[in-house]
Computed example of a mutant assay.
Amino acid sequence: MYMKKRLSLGIVVIMSLALALGGVMGCGAKAPAAGTTPAATDTAKKGPTIKISSKTFTEAALLGTLSLQYLKGLGYPVENKMGLGELAVIRPALTSGQIDLYWEYTGTGVINLMKHDPVFEAQESYKLIKEWDAKNNIVWLDYAPLDDTYGIVVRGDVAEKYKLKTISDYVALVKKGESLKFVGFPEWEGRADGLPSFEKVYDFKMPKGDFVNVAMGLNYDTLKANKGDLAIAFTTEPRIVTDKLVMLVDDKKAFPVYNAAPVVRKEIVDAYPTLADDLKKLSSVLDTRTITELNMQADIEKKSVEEVSTTFLKSKGLLK
C-alpha cells in the first residue's frame, strides 16, 4: 500500500539525492518498490498472479492457506480467494479461470466428477482423475499422504484390552462371538460404499444387536459415554486426537481413498515450471495424522487458520 505524501521544500532535497544516486544504482538493479523488502524483490517470480482458493470447511481452508503462505514466501505472486464454496461452486470457478488453484480429493474427483465407481487404491485413484482432467486443462499435482475417508475408531481402553490394531483384528473377534458395540449412522448403514461394502470386503456379518445407530456427529459422544466400543468416523476428525481414540488400519481396503492434491489450471503450471516441485515439498509433509492435528488446533483450540498454517510451515522449514 502506498502512502500519499505532501509536497514540501524537502522534496527538492530528495530529488537531488535521487539524481546523485542514479549513477550508482543505474546500470541494472532497481530500488525495491514501496511496501516490499529487498528479500522479497530478490525472490519474486515473474508471471501471472496465482488466484488460490478453497472450499469452506476447516481442513480445506487449512490446505488453501498453507499453499497461499508457502507460495507467497517463495516469491510467487498470489491472490487470496479463500472459502469460495463447495464442489458445485469451486469447480466451475477453476475451469473458467476465476481461480487458478485449490485442493481437491482424489475420491471426490473419481466419484463426483468422473461418475466412476469408488476406487480403493491411492495411486490408481490419482491416475484416473489426473488423466481424465487433463482434457479439461486441469493438472492434478502430486497428492498428499493424507487420506480423508471413512475409518473405524476404537476407544483406547477397548483397543488395549483386545490388542486391536487392524480392522481384521476386530472382525476376528466378531467371528469368535465377542460382542462389541459398533456406532454408526443411518446413511452409512444403507449406502453401497458403507456397511454393506464393509461387510463384503471383510467377509463377515455384523450382529444386529451390536450396531448402535446414532445421528451423524454423535458417534464420538456415544463412545465417550461408553455406550459404544467402536465407531465409523472420518479419518481426519480432530476428536480422534482429543478423545484419544485408536484408528484401526483398513488392511483390506474397504473404504475409498480420498487423498488431497493441489489442482491447478494448466496455464499456471506452464507459466511456472518450478510450481509442481515446490508444492510437492508441501504435500509430502501432510499425512493423515498431521492434518488431523492441524484441524484440532483450528476447531478445538480455536486458533485461526492463518496462525496454524504459519506455525506449521515454519516448523517444517517451509516459511521463514
Rank of each mutant, 00 (worst) to 15 (best):
Y105N: 09
K115A: 13
A33P: 10
T37Y: 09
N259K: 07
R191T: 15
G83I: 01
M216Q: 12
I152C: 02
F185A: 14
S96D: 05
L195R: 14
P48F: 05
D157S: 05
A93C: 10
Q98F: 02
F204I: 13
I50L: 02
T311I: 01
W140F: 15
A215Y: 06
A29C: 03
T58G: 05
L74M: 12
F57W: 12
Q98P: 01
T106W: 02
V285A: 10
V308D: 04
G26N: 04
S67K: 15
G209F: 03
S125K: 04
L223K: 11
N112C: 09
S315C: 01
T149A: 04
V78M: 09
N219K: 15
S304C: 05
A34W: 12
V110R: 07
V308W: 00
G23L: 11
L66S: 04
G97K: 03
G28Q: 13
S67Y: 14
D251T: 11
L223R: 11
K115M: 07
A215L: 03
S284D: 10
T95E: 14
G22L: 10
A225S: 04
G217P: 04
G85N: 07
K165N: 10
K281R: 08
V153L: 05
K30D: 03
K316E: 11
R6W: 13
E79L: 03
T236P: 06
A298P: 00
S67D: 15
A29V: 07
G10N: 11
A20Y: 14
V154I: 15
K130N: 07
S309R: 10
A44E: 09
K130H: 13
A40G: 02
Y220N: 12
K51T: 07
A215S: 07
I90V: 15
G85D: 06
L318K: 05
Y2H: 14
L313E: 07
S304F: 08
K314G: 01
G47D: 09
E187T: 15
S168H: 06
W188T: 11
E79F: 07
A33V: 15
T288E: 03
E267R: 06
Q69V: 05
G228V: 04
L279M: 12
N136E: 14
D157K: 09
S179M: 11
L21F: 12
M15Y: 10
D169T: 08
K55T: 07
G217E: 10
K130I: 00
M247V: 13
P92W: 06
